[in-house]
């Protein structure tokens, strides 16, 4: 029976190539349509666009891997299916050193490729904030977000207003339990950890009203810890922020550290 399929590997390999091409074509055609119809949040920052590019590249790289396994297993099931209980054994093939070595080398190369792609994005995320970044203090508490703008007489608000095309430096902490500060459309996410100040930078590039979502289970009303974010023009932002009352006493008897000098992103929070 085995000898009746001398070209099994060639047949399955051709199938693999065909399925890979089909898969890639479907993905490349379908992905932009899905993305434009709600499969991903609206992209309102370059950072998020880069993150989706990485996912896009990963998917293009993943399709051949997926079709490889599925085609070869699928072909084996189709071609070597024995109706009922086999009366004799298959060939005693215990391995193929060249194939095993090739497989290991290719998977190392693939992992290296993933790392190189990811590291580019990581470098941008870990870059130090610009000196003129607008600092926004973000304070998570059960179950709302408080904001203050230390560069603007400590103006305080419970809704977040951001100017477009200007780097924002969020300094995020929590006064009770862990929360996670996420704006899906901007692609910025950083945990709010009690006792620590985490930093994240982002530059919004699209006007609109978005949402802050808490992404870390933080108690009873975690599901409702969502508040609006508005990205507006710089002039609108300035007139809004100057109209906000300053935070005299922070909400629950805490005082944020001095914010006179931007702190390098790396290593923040270890000083305590």
């Amino acid at each position: 029976m085995n000898s009746s399929r001398p070209n099994a590997i060639r047949t399955a390999s051709i199938g693999w190539v065909i399925f890979t091409v089909i898969g890639e074509v479907i993905y490349l055609l379908l992905a932009p349509i899905l993305a434009a119809n709600g499969a991903i949040p609206v992209v309102a920052s370059q950072r998020l666009a880069d993150a989706y590019t990485i996912m896009y590249i990963f998917t293009i790289a993943a399709i051949p891997v997926f079709t490889l396994v599925v085609t070869f297993v699928g072909y084996a099931i189709y071609a070597f299916w024995n109706k009922g209980r086999p009366t004799e054994d298959g060939p005693a093939i215990t391995g193929n050193a060249r194939l095993q070595l090739t497989w290991i080398l290719i998977s190392i190369a693939l992992a290296g490729f993933l790392y190189v792609v990811g590291f580019q994005g990581l470098a941008a995320i870990q870059a130090s904030p610009q000196s003129n970044a607008i600092v926004v203090n973000v304070t998570g508490e059960q179950w709302l977000w408080n904001y203050s703008y230390p560069g603007y007489k400590n103006a305080g608000s419970t809704t977040l207003m951001l100017p477009i095309n200007h780097q924002i430096l969020f300094r995020i902490h929590s006064i009770d339990v862990q929360h996670s500060f996420w704006i899906p459309e901007l692609g910025v996410k950083e945990d709010a950890v009690p006792g620590e100040i985490n930093q994240a930078t982002i530059t919004p590039t699209r006007l609109g009203t978005y949402q802050v979502r808490c992404m870390e289970l933080c108690g009873i009303y975690h599901a409702y810890m969502n508040t609006p974010v508005e990205v507006v023009s710089m002039s609108d932002f300035l007139s809004w922020v100057q109209a906000q009352p300053p935070v005299v006493a922070p909400p629950s008897a805490y005082v944020l550290p001095s914010l006179s000098a931007p702190v390098a992103l790396v290593g923040v929070g270890k000083s305590s």
Partner: peptide, 19 residues
């Protein structure tokens, strides 16, 4: 992890699969 898939494919290949 990928090695497990190689082992699986290689074992199925040219076997007499009893489903």
């Amino acid at each position: 992890t990928g090695l497990v898939f190689l082992v699986a494919i290689g074992t199925l290949w040219r076997g007499k699969l009893w489903m």
